[in-house]
């Protein structure tokens, strides 16, 4: 449907970069291409890619969501303290997810009904929620405790099913669902249409406000999901968790070929983008690269990848 020739090129290009990149690393370090390490990379990527999936919805409408990291911190802290306080697993997880979705919906309402630019609106909620996370946790990590429910909870992040870490299943499910929504449902079509031309979308009889609220709700919900996984992995919620994650998520989306101005891009690209970042982090650690050079290399990779993408788009 949206897959024009250009779209296919972009898709294959980021995939191509990922494969090439992986091959180079595999040659440099034989431990890279082991089953264990691949599962390890996928598990580490799950957090960023789940947030980036939500971010893809937002960016496709031409928006941006800076509050994802703060939502992650707040929802993680809520889940951890509920578990620590003896609440049951299902209730804790559902409460955290609901809070994420509600905060996201709030972002969407401020942006659509209040006509505030997404950057400004989510910058405000980002700061506000980070403050709330500090207040809520009193600046200290919240441990889930060591009782039985906490053990089950931690398996959401640290557990395995059939030898594969559970966060990988969660990530796969999120992407399958996101793909389905964006490609096969009318809501997905509205997301693209809104990103291409908001006015024409409104003139076509579509309630643009509702679409905006939807995408920010998705982003908030998925941030909460990432918050639960990260809290479960550590059996503890950090008040500072997720700071800077919005930038990692945006980087993944952009590396995947989605345009920041909206309307163009795919969820498939986003997962590739997230994997490129994940593989890079993993490789730098595997090869014991000095920390001073790590940031340098990461910045370079993003710059080169985005430039490649730009070049491809202009020379269609």
């Amino acid at each position: 449907m949206m897959m024009t020739i250009k779209g296919k090129l972009i898709r294959n290009k980021s995939l191509f970069v990922l494969i090439l990149f992986s091959l180079v690393i595999a040659v440099l370090n034989p431990r890279f291409l082991t089953v264990n390490n691949i599962l390890n990379v996928l598990r580490q990527t799950s957090i960023n890619s789940i947030i980036a999936a939500g971010m893809t919805f937002v960016i496709l409408t031409g928006g941006i969501d800076l509050s994802v990291g703060s939502i992650l911190a707040v929802t993680g802290a809520v889940a951890a303290s509920m578990i620590a306080g003896g609440a049951n697993l299902f209730a804790s997880v559902m409460t955290a997810l609901a809070i994420g979705a509600v905060i996201g919906a709030f972002n969407g309402i401020v942006i659509s009904k209040g006509k505030i630019q997404p950057f400004i609106a989510t910058l405000a909620t980002m700061t506000l929620l980070r403050g709330y996370a500090m207040v809520f946790t009193d600046g200290k990590p919240v441990s889930t405790g060591s009782h039985e429910v906490a053990g089950v909870f931690s398996s959401i992040g640290a557990g395995y099913f059939l030898g594969v870490p559970i966060p990988i299943y969660v990530m796969a499910a999120v992407f399958a669902l996101a793909y389905y929504i964006l490609r096969h449902t009318r809501t997905g079509r509205y997301v693209y249409s809104l990103g291409c031309n908001e006015e024409a979308t409104v003139y076509s009889g579509i309630n643009a406000d509702r679409v905006k609220i939807f995408v920010y709700t998705v982003s908030g919900f998925l941030s909460a999901l990432a918050g639960i996984i990260i809290t479960a992995r550590l059996s503890s919620a950090q008040p500072q968790a997720g700071s800077g994650y919005e930038l990692d998520a945006i980087a993944a989306v952009v590396l995947g070929g989605t345009s920041l101005s909206g309307g163009v891009g795919s969820i498939f690209g986003t997962i590739i983008g997230a994997l490129i970042i994940g593989v890079l982090n993993n490789a730098l650690n595997l090869m014991d690269v000095s920390s001073y050079y790590q940031l340098l290399l990461k910045g370079l990779v993003i710059l080169v990848a985005v430039l490649l993408d730009r070049k491809q788009k202009s020379s269609k």
Partner: peptide
């Protein structure tokens, strides 16, 4: 600390 250690454990 978690993710860096995971990677080192692989290496």
């Amino acid at each position: 600390g978690l993710s860096v250690m995971e990677n080192i454990l692989q290496a």
